[in-house]
Design a protein around this nucleic acid. Structure first.
Lengths: 216, 216
DNA sequence: GGCGACATACCGACTGGTTAGTCTGCCGGG
DNA sequence: CCCGGCAGACTAACCAGTCGGTATGTCGCC
């Protein structure tokens, strides 16, 4: 059931002259953003392959002409979504990692932070893990490379802690990172915004599990 | 509409091939199994929606007539793959849970076992978490119900340990289970059979992480 | 031990429907 | 008067599922 928000969403202003945009509401977001938002919602809801560009443009209240004016292909739209999430998370990880606190605190903060931002962008995250393989090979390579940067920065933190002796080195840092990201990845399969735990609570629990697993 | 497979269960059981099969060469598996194997490989490789029925039947060396003789729809093929993995893992979990060992040992064994069987059926596992949402609503509900049974059995084990005081109860058992299964699902994104760790080694590491996270 | 009747297993051309992407053209503002 | 921004009809490709047809096997019966 397409949740078309029957009230507010005036997708089709009928014969409203496009030129007089600012007429009354001025609030309408620019077309490219509307397309991205519609695509994100639909990709998360039905999957990339099951969403036709016709549906996207209808949800955004425009036509194909508009979409292909701003984006090169359907694939491009997906790639943009990836870029948005990756940039956000990388930036936040860098900030945490560069903070001056102790290793233990930096790892805990990074682990919790990625959980919170994932939950706050659950649609993006779901698309990320589900639709990676529908990207063209070239774009897929690019995404994987950025992903690896993130992964390696995180791993370096864990290794630092292991060398310093505040973490056990029973388990290779690589595996530790994959272990934690697995649970992050899985969030979109079970977390429901209307559940009993807030994003921060979930993040604290998951970061807590990781920290306990790393205890020497 | 009427599914021609109605009730029939032709999974990997070594059912006697109807007459002809064996011929001279001797190696050829029966057609339904060949179709399942081809579909599994292709779904894992290119995704469900990107795999055409034509490609499946070509890979299996038959034609559409054969496929629709044994399966009601493309969707059915996918459902069978899910059933195969779910039955296998449920059976193994039940066996571990019913063994007489201590809670700690049962949880460790269950946690490690699911890792090993997931790696040993990596294609199935990849299809599982990537293509769930392409199943018809009805079949999806069924799969989710079976999945929940598994999840709850595992959770009960963790809770038992928490009540007995051998595990910390800082984190709700539900979250613990999702934490671990997250990493299991994630396996198909990073594990490579030609890597340096054997399935058993990975399983021991991941189970070890879980057990340490649960230590009081 | 031959014959018809029916069943199983499969073939492959065909249909009806869908889709990403293209292209021509309108429209208003600078 | 020209150009960015967009409309929407159009096309060429594809694809799941259907259906009539064929080959082979099996069973009952004389």
């Amino acid at each position: 059931m397409a949740s078309r928000t029957a009230g507010k969403d005036h997708t089709d202003r009928a014969a409203a002259p496009p030129g007089t945009a600012a007429a009354a509401g001025g609030g309408e977001a620019p077309v490219p953003q509307r397309l991205m938002a519609a695509a994100t919602r639909l990709f998360a809801e039905r999957g990339y392959d099951r969403t036709s560009v016709q549906e996207i443009v209808e949800a955004a209240g425009v036509t194909k002409g508009a979409l292909y004016h701003y984006f090169g292909s359907k694939d491009d739209l997906l790639h943009e979504i990836y870029g948005r999430l990756l940039r956000l998370q990388q930036e936040r990880l860098d900030r945490v990692a560069d903070s001056g606190s102790g290793v233990e605190e930096r790892v805990r903060a990074a682990a919790a932070d990625v959980v919170v931002t994932t939950i706050e962008n659950l649609d993006d995250a779901m698309i990320f893990f589900r639709s990676m393989h529908q990207l063209s090979d070239e774009k897929q390579k690019q995404v994987r490379a950025e992903r690896r940067r993130y992964h390696e920065r995180f791993r370096a933190l864990v290794e630092e802690g292991q060398r310093a002796g505040v973490f056990t080195d029973e388990t290779p840092a690589d595996l530790v990172v994959d272990y934690h990201f697995g649970s992050v990845h899985h969030l979109s399969s079970w977390y429901r915004p209307d559940g009993r735990l807030t994003p921060q609570q979930v993040a604290d629990h998951l970061a807590g599990l990781l920290m306990r697993a790393l205890r020497p």
